[in-house]
Design a protein around this nucleic acid. Structure first.
Length: 422
DNA sequence: CACCTAGTTGGGAAC
DNA sequence: AGTTCCCAACTAGGT
């Protein structure tokens, strides 16, 4: 199919009529003076409405290329799972998600058929422990492989929004999720060495440890923290887990507990996720490791309480870690605290049937915070980001706000507390 | 009905 | 899109 034919059929601009993304990253970067926007909000402002979105969806294409017409390349056989290096996987180990465009469109229609659900969608409010019916659309693998067009998805969502009274907005809405995807594509496209720490101007330089033992325990789902290990089993078996579940394990590997380099975790996700996408995967590892975009390194996901608040009974853990299925719910998130009689009754002795924790979250997370604090201070010094004058300005601004608010507030915030929010 | 106590909930601040 | 601690406010039930 010729680009011009498609464009005239679709009634859209001749430039980039077909694309993997909603916007052209180069356009956004150009609008921003040559540098990619580094916050979602600034990205939204630059992006605006996509030009093609006001046109009706193309209902048919004038022509399709003959099967096998791929220009200079020969079509080769689709490699088998074994040929791709995934040996020893039984049928029950395979992802429950089927591939292909038909499946993608079926899933899309199912997802948008509940208009109220679409209108009220708010990420990250979904339940990461929901596995019978995931809290999100699970359309990411189809977007990644091009089985589903992000532009078509966008227009379908716009149609739903037009037929409801009110709907959520970016960043939390469903359209907001597509925009997150374009945000990461744009930054990734415009940032040299985006996929590594060294030579990457937006990445904090942090002296991550090189502990292969800890990395292996994380990768192989034997950290001793059932919430973490269950997520890693879901990753291995399904190739997909909920957004917040990914947050928990990424935080645990890097800045939360193990202090292992985010590039190592990135490689594992890249290999095992069925939706792994270079820009989005690297972007999220930069985010979760507090290397870029997000810098609140004190906010650490608890490997115990985070999952518990969604799934107090531990059903998710019981499903993905059957060895713990008879552990009483009082101990299932911290089985090493269960008395031996309970462990015996649950047929799960810690240290024999299921590992003891490889790190103590309490001390490990404190140590991580300390190291991040040091690394941040060093980065600041090296980059000269906060000069003496800059600090004075911040102090003046803080005192100004404090005076304005002191009338209606009894307690005073400290300067350090305030600085963290600004 | 006043008063007490234990337990729960919600918001703010520190880390 | 963090967790924990603390305290005020509130509830339920008992005396």
């Amino acid at each position: 199919m010729k680009v011009k034919d498609y464009a005239s059929t679709a009634g859209i601009e001749v430039f980039s009529p077909v694309s993997h993304t909603l916007f052209n990253p180069a356009d956004i970067i150009q609008k921003n003076g040559g540098k990619p926007p580094l916050t979602y909000q600034s990205f939204l402002k630059l992006a605006g409405q996509p030009l093609w979105a006001s046109s009706p969806l193309p209902v048919s294409l004038s022509s399709l290329p003959p099967v096998g017409d791929v220009g200079y390349f020969e079509i080769s056989e689709v490699p088998t799972v074994e040929e791709l290096g995934y040996k020893g996987y039984g049928q029950e180990e395979l992802s429950p998600f089927r591939g292909g465009e038909s499946e993608a469109l079926k899933k899309l229609r199912e997802s948008i058929s509940d208009k109220e659900w679409v209108a009220n969608f708010e990420k990250p409010k979904g339940d990461p422990s929901a596995y019978l019916k995931p809290a999100t659309t699970v359309l990411s693998p189809y977007l990644k492989f091009g089985c589903l067009s992000s532009r078509y998805f966008y227009q379908c969502l716009t149609d739903v929004y037009q037929n409801v009274k009110k709907h959520t907005s970016p960043p939390v809405s469903l359209v907001g999720q597509l925009l997150w995807r374009d945000f990461f594509y744009t930054v990734a496209f415009g940032t040299p060495n985006f996929d590594r720490m060294k030579g990457n101007r937006i990445c904090k330089q942090i002296p991550w440890s090189n502990d292969d033992e800890l990395l292996a325990a994380w990768r192989e789902a034997r950290t001793g923290y059932p919430w973490i290990d269950a997520i890693m089993v879901q990753l291995r078996k399904w190739g997909w887990m909920h957004h917040l579940a990914r947050h928990c394990v990424a935080c645990f590997l890097t800045r939360g507990d193990m202090f292992v380099h985010w590039e190592k975790g990135r490689d594992v996700f890249d290999r095992l996720l069925i939706d792994s996408d270079w820009a989005i995967n690297n972007g999220n590892w930069l985010w979760l490791s507090c290397s870029s975009f997000f810098y609140q390194y004190n906010r650490i996901y608890s490997p115990v309480s985070f999952g518990k608040k969604y799934d107090p009974n531990g059903n998710y853990i019981r499903h993905f870690l059957p060895v713990l299925k008879d552990m009483p719910k009082e101990y299932i998130y911290e089985p090493w605290t269960a008395p031996l009689t309970i462990q015996t009754r649950a047929k799960c002795i810690i240290g024999r049937d299921y590992p003891a924790p490889v790190v103590s979250h309490d001390s490990a997370s404190k140590e991580c915070k300390r190291k991040l604090g040091e690394a941040y201070a060093l980065n600041q010094k090296l980059n000269g980001q906060v000069s003496e004058d800059g600090l004075k300005n911040l102090r003046r601004k803080f005192e100004g706000e404090e005076n304005q608010e002191s009338g209606r507030r009894q307690k005073q915030k400290t300067l350090t507390g305030w600085l963290k929010d600004h």
